[in-house]
Simulated assay, not measured.
Amino acid sequence: MTIHLEQYQSGQYQKGYEYCYFMPSSINDEWVWQAPQVNRLLEKAAVRLGELNSFARLVPNINLFIQLHVTKEAVVSSRIEGTQTNMREAVLPESEILPEHRNDWREVQNYKQALNQAINDLKTLPLSSRLLKQTHAILLQSVRGEHKMPGEFRTSQNWIGGHSLADAAFIPPHHQHVNDLMGDLEHFLHNQDIHVPALIRIAIAHYQFETIHPFLDGNGRIGRLLIPLFLVSEGILDKPLLYLSSYFEKNKGLYYDNLMVVREKNDMLQWLKYFLVGIELTASLAVSTLSNIITLKAKLEQNLQVNFGRRAASAQLLLNALFIQPATSVDAVQKICDTSYKTANELVAQMCKHGILQEITGQTRNRVFIFAEYLAIFSD
Rank of each mutant, 00 (worst) to 15 (best):
H4I: 14
Y8H: 14
Q9A: 12
S10R: 06
Y13R: 14
K15F: 12
G16R: 12
E18N: 14
E18A: 15
C20H: 15
Y21M: 15
Y21V: 00
I27V: 13
W33T: 12
Q34Y: 14
A35P: 03
V38T: 10
R40E: 07
E43D: 08
A45R: 00
R48T: 10
E51N: 12
A56T: 02
L64A: 10
T71S: 15
S77V: 05
E81G: 07
G82Q: 14
N86S: 07
A90Y: 02
S95H: 15
E96C: 13
N103Q: 08
Q113D: 15
A114Q: 07
L115Q: 09
N116G: 08
L122S: 07
T124G: 01
S128T: 09
S129I: 05
L131I: 09
L131Q: 11
I138T: 09
L140C: 04
R144C: 00
R144V: 00
R144G: 00
E146P: 00
H147N: 11
P150L: 00
F153T: 04
R154Q: 00
I160Q: 02
G161C: 10
G162P: 04
S164N: 07
A169L: 12
P172S: 03
L181Y: 00
G183I: 01
G183D: 05
E186M: 08
N191Q: 00
D193W: 04
D193H: 11
Y207D: 12
E210S: 01
L216D: 04
R221T: 01
G223V: 07
G223L: 09
L225P: 00
I227N: 02
I236V: 15
D238Q: 14
L242M: 08
S245D: 14
E249H: 05
K252L: 03
Y256K: 04
L259P: 00
M260G: 10
V261L: 02
M268Q: 06
Q270R: 14
K273W: 01
K273V: 09
Y274T: 09
L276F: 09
S284G: 09
L285F: 09
N292P: 00
L296V: 13
K297C: 06
L300I: 09
E301F: 04
Q302M: 08
N307Y: 11
G309F: 01
A313S: 10
I324G: 02
Q325G: 02
S329F: 05
S329W: 03
D331Y: 04
V333N: 04
T339L: 07
S340K: 07
N345P: 04
A349L: 07
A349N: 14
Q350W: 06
Q350G: 13
G355D: 14
Q358Y: 15
Q358V: 11
T361G: 01
R365T: 11
R367I: 14
I370H: 06
E373Y: 05
Y374L: 11
L375M: 15
I377A: 01
